[in-house]
Write a protein that binds this DNA or RNA. Structure first.
Lengths: 223, 223
DNA sequence: AAAAAAACTATCCAAATGGATTATTGATGA
DNA sequence: TCATCAATAATCCATTTGGATAGTTTTTTT
């Protein structure tokens, strides 16, 4: 049984999808959530070996958008793979999702059998479902790297989490292991302010402690 | 009819592949070569509209290696697309081949039908053929760009800090943002013990807080 | 000029962390 | 066999952190 998570804001969609998957006895729906916030929260509460191995993620959601959710989730819980589920075959969004850490995408209309097939394949071979047009975009990206960028691996991830300049600055200090009051001194502000910034950063990254924030910072190149 | 070229040093491979392709009447094998040198020579002798539109290129060849051949060929004859055919799916070579100008990458074991399908698709849509498992590898390369390796030799920073197995284990949990008692639970030991280990880790890394320890862990690949 | 974001400051409180010290057990090695 | 070391565990104590809440002041945008 493959442990599956479903994130979609429409309750009906979740039910339909869960039904499709339950039809053959290969999938165990372990987690349902109506938005990213809820999803991350539920993931946190699950033990490692209870977390879904594959999460089907809707992109069009209120509260916390699917791409941000994948970015945060794939950093925090690398044992889980994310497959985008969407009604639109919109290359750009899917491409962004993939950069955020998704390993494939599926259209919602696909039949239960096809979805089941693809998920099985993902689980067995680690090969995610990727449409030819997406694969081609990826290729082009490698062959023609975006202009005026150093070809060294580090590319700035485009402010996926909407951190302000000040927040990024403080995140960098955090990564260096400075304490609130040390950062405060460096910036000539109060330690209370630093703390407030840090809490705001945690909110934006959807985490609740320094280690997790740094984990995202390092793995998503936020520095 | 799509004009095809096949470059492989094993005569037998060329024959098998040509047979696979000839089975349906879509492909016209125009050029065969046993190595890069020979391939480029034959290309030169052909008129523009006789040259293959797609070349299937083995990588493992004597005299002139497939990657160099693609690099040269794609410069000299941009009207021809190159698809790498190989038995190995080794990340570095894929990456190099693609940088050299290959527009797709196929494993030799793929069935004739699949190869035919993919080539047709390449011809019609310009979308390069990529086996799912290869596509996934490319994805991963994009998602985790290989860290620009700083120095030669001692890449395998073999336990530079002399951490014990237990300590490394605990360091990994720390990086995931777990607290002492969560780690304690996972390992079925006391939180006090975890704390002791953490302090020992700090000693070995010569740091005095979590953020600095994680900084070293991430930047020195201790995970 | 008004409204909306960012940045700044503060206080209270609970929880987590770090440091130092002491002690038992089992495994490894000289 | 004796010494050492890794792993285990506990206690005391000060400091740091996380969370909630409530403000003020700049800056930016509309």
């Amino acid at each position: 049984m493959i442990r599956i998570g479903i994130v979609d804001d429409k309750r009906n969609n979740r039910i339909i999808l869960a039904d499709k998957l339950r039809r053959n006895n290969l999938f165990d729906i372990r987690l349902e959530a109506a938005n990213g916030e809820q999803f991350l929260h539920k993931m946190m509460e699950l033990k490692f070996d209870e977390r879904p191995e594959i999460v089907l993620m809707d992109l069009e959601m209120p509260v916390m958008d699917g791409i941000v959710t994948i970015a945060a989730g794939s950093s925090l819980y690398p044992g889980t793979r994310y497959v985008v589920l969407t009604i639109f075959d919109d290359d750009d969004r899917i491409f962004n999702a993939i950069k955020a850490g998704a390993c494939g995408y599926l259209l919602k209309e696909e039949s239960g059998d096809i979805i089941a097939d693809i998920l099985m394949n993902l689980w067995k071979n680690g090969a995610g479902p990727i449409s030819p047009s997406i694969a081609y975009k990826i290729l082009q990206m490698i062959q023609n790297p975006p202009p005026a960028k150093p070809l060294s691996g580090a590319q700035k991830s485009e402010n996926l989490f909407q951190l302000s300049e000040r927040e990024k600055e403080i995140l960098r200090f955090l990564c260096q292991g400075l304490e609130y009051k040390e950062i405060a001194e460096k910036l000539s502000i109060s330690a209370n302010t630093v703390k407030k910034h840090v809490i705001n950063i945690y909110d934006k990254l959807h985490v609740n402690n320094k280690a997790r924030a740094l984990h995202i910072a390092y793995t998503k190149n936020l520095l």
